[in-house]
Design a protein around this nucleic acid. Structure first.
Lengths: 178, 178
DNA sequence: TGGATATGTTTACACCGTAAACACTGCCAT
DNA sequence: ATGGCAGTGTTTACGGTGTAAACATATCCA
């Protein structure tokens, strides 16, 4: 459902892939790594061009940028997004390796940085910090999946974008309000 | 990967299923409906036993109950949870049919009710209400998937439970704080 | 009683992932 | 230059899978 069709599209014999990967899952794991690296690069690019300034507003902008780009990437490349979370991806595998790609920052690392800044700027109480990256991640991850796979499949893109902003509003408020 | 093995476990010929379902996907859709109904029943049971009282605290308790049971169900029945969101499930299909099961309330309907109560109790500003069910849903859905499939696979159950509560704290705060 | 309906089986086919054996190319050490 | 070797590709083959078609059986109602 993947391997043979992939070889066909590349115009090569079905078993050619076995010279490069142990089996189908190994190939998918490699694709997962590549997709993760690409996602990280996309997010990094947007975060990088946030102008410096008040740490509070920078932190909020970073949080928004990470979330927005995360679901944007999923909508633009649903196949790659799925592949990225196929398996493997054990927190470690998303941050540690990245031998081929540049940008040492994984998506998770970028999110963590934004949250750390949010705490150090005083906008987010430090009691709320533990595991916060997983909470924020869950929100955008779930939303992305509902959009590309799930019951929100039919939502038009522009509407999805505005709901994404509402989602990030909610997360930000949940972290930073009294 | 499913059909033939299923027939084998039931002890029946591979094609017996074709007398009941058009194809593999139709069978999976039926399983999805059943899983959705079961999930709704589980959530309903917990919500139902929340004692009456101050609408504000009832609404918050309902929100917490729905979220907690949602991820609890996913952790307890990962297979069914996956099946539930296999395909089909078009918002409508989760609420409308339910011809066989009892409890007309779908998971989404229960969540919607909790949010409506949260608004009418004054705890949640009505400007925040639009699409709020999808925001809350995204959060628990994503978290459940990260836990059973994704990078949080390794998190022990008791820890997952406490992070779930933190997640709901975040969502509740995001909805109800100034 | 007899036919329709529901359910199950057998046979057959194309496709998939994968193993094993074989063929070709380029490079390096002798 | 030559031999071997690592890298890459192909061919053939096997078991598993979803599905179509034809056939069988049981159950129920006119």
């Amino acid at each position: 459902m993947v391997l043979r069709e992939a070889t066909r599209r590349v115009g090569v014999s079905p078993n050619a892939a076995y010279r490069h990967f142990a089996d189908r899952d190994a190939l998918l794991a490699a694709v997962s790594d590549a997709a993760l690296a690409l996602l990280a690069t996309c997010i990094d690019e947007i975060v990088e061009r946030i102008p410096e300034g008040d740490p509070d507003v920078v932190a909020r902008a970073q949080l928004r940028a990470v979330g927005t780009e995360y679901v944007s990437f999923a909508l633009d490349n649903p196949g790659l997004f799925h592949a990225a979370f196929f398996v493997a991806s054990d927190l470690e595998s998303s941050s540690a390796p990245s031998k081929s790609g540049r940008s040492g920052r994984s998506p998770l690392a970028l999110l963590t940085a934004a949250l750390d800044l949010l705490v150090s700027s005083g906008a987010m109480p430090s009691e709320r910090r533990p595991q916060a990256e997983f909470l924020a991640w869950s929100s955008v991850h779930g939303f992305a999946l509902l959009l590309i796979d799930g019951p929100l499949r039919a939502l038009p893109r522009d509407q999805a974008d505005v709901v994404t902003q509402r989602l990030i509003d909610m997360v930000e408020a949940g972290f930073t309000c009294p």
